[in-house]
Amino acid sequence: MIEVKGLTKRYGTHTAVSDLSFTIEDGKIYGFLGPNGAGKSTTMNMITGCISATDGEVFINGHDIFEEPLEAKKNIGYLPELPPLYTDFTVREYLKFVSELKKVPKQQIKEEVDRVITETNTEEYADRLIRTLSKGYRQRVGLAQALIGNPSIIILDEPSIGLDPKQIIEMRELIRGLGKNHTVILSSHILSEVSAVCDHILIIRRGRLVANGTPEELEKNLQTSSQLDVEVIGEEDVIRKALDEIDATIEVGKSEEPTALHVILKTPEKSDLREPVSRALSAAGCIILGMQLSHASLEDVFLELTDQDVADVTVSEGGEEA
């Protein structure tokens, strides 16, 4: 379990991470989502003890990472954004070094190295120099390194960046597999990647936590909009008048059906207008050919948050100019 309380990191006057607090529970896969430069890597580097925090506390299974780093770090396997590989070594030699570094008992080292090699499907390349491996396999060796010592928490920073689509799918499978025995935290700036594997999503924006929940919760709780598309046969005036009572913004346009009109009703909150719209249009004598209700997806939620980010930036830039 990881408890993060009021975590802050400042570089001079620039605040990379600001007052971040959350709890990571055991046995789930967590996704750390945010646009580039949101502070994901900085946060992960702080949780793993690579860099210090300006303020705040991090407890790894009850051990404070800044006060008792050695105890806390035993529980973590970390794959940074760039896999930390010694390219002059073979995969096996490298993993042996990591085992020694992580204080795996001497007689178990060989077994442990074999285990992580099998787990990451790198048997074929185990005796090759890391320098000669492709990006995808380097990433796997990086993951293998994180698994050494069987830590209860695995932290992966952008694990599928720079991989080709096939490798991304394989990496996802690997991560899903890890989720069965470990708590996994992974970061990404790509939503589809996080929603594909994670049980729980934390969205971070400009160093602040803006959303925290399961993918379903996020879609439900966050301010999401609904849209109702209706194909109607009738006069535009009549339709507009009929829908006057309904609390939504209405657009009327041409439809693909030659005789019909395409009406779009948008509401800022989640709602289902099918019944009132149907009644109103029928009462006005219009014929409904089809209806399609859609809610904002997680993608939209994320885009909305990212858009806000863009909006904030423009505002602050404008402020500076003024």
Binding site: K73, P80, L85
Partner: peptide, 12 residues
């Protein structure tokens, strides 16, 4: 090479 991150996150 960013390998320092391996050393810093290890229990040493």
């Amino acid at each position: 090479q960013r390998t320092e991150q391996l050393l810093f996150s290890a229990p040493v």
